[in-house]
Design a protein around this nucleic acid. Structure first.
Lengths: 167, 167
DNA sequence: GATTTTATGTCAGTTATGTTGACATAATTT
DNA sequence: AAATTATGTCAACATAACTGACATAAAATC
């Protein structure tokens, strides 16, 4: 009789996710390192690009970090001319965040290798992007599901975005 | 004419990977936090469990961190009775690493919520585990592909594991 | 109009996890 | 006997997170 080695279902994917995410992140990390930035800057650039004009509070809610943590990287991004702050047109306490041309160039250069890697992986694996998207979407918490929906609904044309209660 | 918004292929997956990995990590993070450990401990526990008896050098190569970084968390894991070190039977300079019963219990409790989340996501998305596995495997670097293969080949029965050059 | 709440910023200290460089020890290899 | 290797350790440092406390200006409420 063999010794029973308890293996949970789908545990192979646990390890694969670790490696995949690590390598997925490494390309932009290299670029960021060269200009003295890190992942924190990357995330800010990403979301400001995804929703131009979003406020500091909205960004904090997406990143799930404290304002003190955000302040440091945001200051560096503003000082470096990657991000612009404008007072909110309706509530002047708010700071709306926008990427500058430089900021847009940087986020594009960070996304490029990631896009390449994903496209290559889709091809190599023969998987459909939609399937992977559905799986990854199903992996996130309900709160994140909602946030992603809002981002994809796109605040481009003033679609009245109802801001539901967030607890 | 509308302003052209450059969007790279598969860029939706970039954001989804960020959210999915963050939420995937959060369950074990909570458990770890309660006993004063972090992700670094998690990773060590995972790989020692995956390949019982692996050496410090092998672990460093999997984690891609320096020995000084590893030393800190490894010491805590050994002192806490989660990991055991035994001199290598053939080369007594090496330290083979093994989980104790406590260590195995802990890594199982960390894997459980992750397994649950993955299983639920597979069901919700209607995706096959094999497809996701193929995609994630395709996402990693060649070096990691090799490491994963070795781990899955399983060093259980003395299969002579050829250790190829690693540069 | 005065008070309270809100959005944001800032100062100071702490923690987790990584880094580099230098050196020590014991065991193996040459 | 000498050199190399596997591991450990000391010290200093960086990044990105954290908590707690307080400041300011604008908006909302009483």
């Amino acid at each position: 009789m063999t010794t029973k080695t308890e293996t949970l279902p789908a545990s192979g994917l646990i390890e694969l996710l670790f490696f995949a995410y690590r390598d997925f992140i490494s390309d932009p990390d290299t670029i960021l390192g060269e200009i003295g930035f890190g992942r924190a800057h990357h995330r800010v650039l990403h979301f400001v690009d995804r929703k131009p004009g979003l406020t500091v509070a909205e960004l904090l809610d997406l990143l799930k970090i404290t304002k003190q943590s955000l302040a440091r990287v945001l200051k560096q991004l503003v000082d470096g001319g990657y991000v612009e702050q404008r007072p909110g047109p309706v509530d002047r306490r708010q700071r709306e965040l926008y990427l500058t041309g430089t900021g847009r160039t940087l986020i594009r250069s960070l996304r490029e290798p990631q896009s390449r890697r994903i496209v290559a992986a889709l091809e190599q694996s023969g998987c459909a992007e939609e399937d992977i998207a559905r799986f990854l979407f199903a992996m996130v918490t309900d709160n994140a599901k909602h946030q992603i929906s809002v981002l994809n609904a796109g605040g481009r044309d003033g679609a009245a975005e109802p801001r539901p209660s967030e607890d």
